[in-house]
Nucleic acid binder design. Structure first.
Length: 425
DNA sequence: CTAGCCTTGAGT
DNA sequence: ACTCAAGGCTAG
């Protein structure tokens, strides 16, 4: 009886189960038995710790958390009933508090977000189409093409700057907890989205374009586009040479990369190569068919397993790609930013000015966050953001595992560039 | 803004 | 399967 915290479900519910019932609809029965303690209107039950009607409930939800309450035009003691309740918000709110309504029970921004995510996830799990009243704008938030419309006067982006760490078990991130964000379940409310600054948009387009023109495309050596060509690990490594060239092309286009000293450039590149390749590979993984897309057809993972013998490694790799794909949602901008975050890794081998690298990396981490906020709303961005960063750190161990294996290649059969870049000679 | 109606996850 | 009590949506 005295639990003040939780909404005491079932408290005085059973008062009139018996008599009123008959064969009338239930809600009708209940409706007639409870009375709003604020205004006397019919009540359905408890709202924010007091029995109130729907309107007082909504009123309280709208007003209780406001910092500035409207003032009473009279003596702060207006009587509130079903007729007068809307005349004086001040006294109505005061009465709400007086009869015991608790503003603590109004979900805060974060709780609301969690709740909505739960709903969203259930919807997609049940395969149920979300209730759509109408499908309005379908603006592509992501190519900054035009001068964005003039009517966007939303300055008060109430950004929470909430720090990243949601509940997450370490190890490998559990992507099953991430909802499949699709267009229909995204909030319609414009204020739920960040508007990227002009500079951010420029940065994003440039980097996405660069990515698409380099790493984003197929780059299979014709020699290696058929299953029969994969006989051993060397073949796999050599096949990657084309990709490495593209990677180099990609990073050279980056202003931030060019700003580094020659030595730092080499260090960054060398320490990220493997990770970058693994990251990029997710683009070409076909989850359904468990294979790798090439211009000439699918190469199944089992072929590669046979070629290398490293079954667990391939399993880890494909699992990684599967979850990464879910997080990037086929969005190359995200992959491109991740690629850069991986590139500017302050932990890398023989980096001379780590802080500078870290600063650059920060810039792109922030860009990633902002992009997500603009693309899938503040509501979903945090889950995705944290999981994506988790993916970046998982890359480290995945890359290390691959590196160990690489030590076993037959150096004489490997292309010079690959030897160089992988430090294999 | 209001207030009614609706959808929901959790709890029984 | 039902009830409760949150939030969402939206005519008016």
């Amino acid at each position: 009886m005295e639990d003040l915290r939780l909404p005491s479900v079932g408290d005085n519910v059973k008062g009139g189960m018996g008599e009123g019932g008959m064969s009338l609809k239930k809600y009708k029965r209940v409706k007639e038995e409870k009375i709003c303690l604020v205004c006397g209107d019919n009540a359905l039950g408890y709202n924010f710790n007091a029995i109130t009607c729907e309107s007082c409930k909504a009123f309280f939800r709208r007003n209780a958390l406001k910092q500035e309450h409207p003032k009473c035009l009279f003596q702060n003691n207006c009587s509130i009933d079903i007729r007068t309740r809307r005349f004086c918000p001040h006294c109505r709110l005061k009465k709400c508090f007086d009869i015991g309504m608790k503003k603590e029970m109004i979900l805060d921004e974060n709780e609301r977000k969690v709740r909505m995510q739960k709903v969203a996830m259930n919807r997609q799990k049940r395969g149920k189409a979300p209730i759509i009243k109408e499908e309005p704008q379908d603006v592509d938030m992501f190519m900054p093409d035009t001068q964005s419309m003039p009517g966007m006067m939303m300055d008060h982006t109430e950004d929470r700057f909430s720090i990243v760490a949601p509940d997450m078990s370490y190890g490998s991130s559990d992507v099953s907890l991430v909802p499949d964000v699709d267009k229909v379940m995204l909030p319609k409310d414009r204020s739920m989205y960040r508007t990227l600054t002009h500079d951010e948009q420029i940065m994003l387009t440039e980097l996405t374009t660069s990515f698409n023109e380099t790493l984003g495309g197929y780059s299979f050596d014709p020699k290696y586009n058929s299953e029969t060509n994969y006989k051993c690990l060397d073949d796999l490594v050599n096949n990657s040479e084309v990709v490495v060239r593209r990677l180099i092309k990609f990073v050279k286009r980056l202003e931030d990369f060019r700003s580094l000293s020659q030595e730092n450039q080499v260090s960054c590149l060398k320490s990220c190569v493997l990770n970058a390749l693994l990251l990029r590979s997710s683009l070409f993984y076909d989850v359904e068919n468990d294979g790798w897309k090439t211009p000439t057809g699918l190469i199944s993972t089992s072929t590669l397993k046979k070629a290398t013998g490293y079954h667990e490694l391939h399993d880890a790799h494909t699992a990684y790609c599967t979850s990464l794909k879910k997080l990037t949602r086929e969005n190359n901008s995200i992959l491109a930013i991740l690629q850069i975050i991986v590139l500017f890794n302050p932990e890398g081998q023989s980096i001379e000015n780590r802080q500078k690298i870290a600063d650059i990396q920060d810039k792109y981490i922030l860009l990633l966050k902002h992009f997500l906020e603009s693309d899938i709303s503040f509501m979903f961005s945090q889950v995705f953001f944290s999981h994506l960063l988790q993916k970046v750190s998982e890359l480290r161990s995945l890359g290390d595992d691959h590196a160990k294996i690489l030590l076993q290649v037959n150096a004489s059969q490997i292309e010079p560039l690959m030897l160089e870049v992988l430090n294999l000679h």
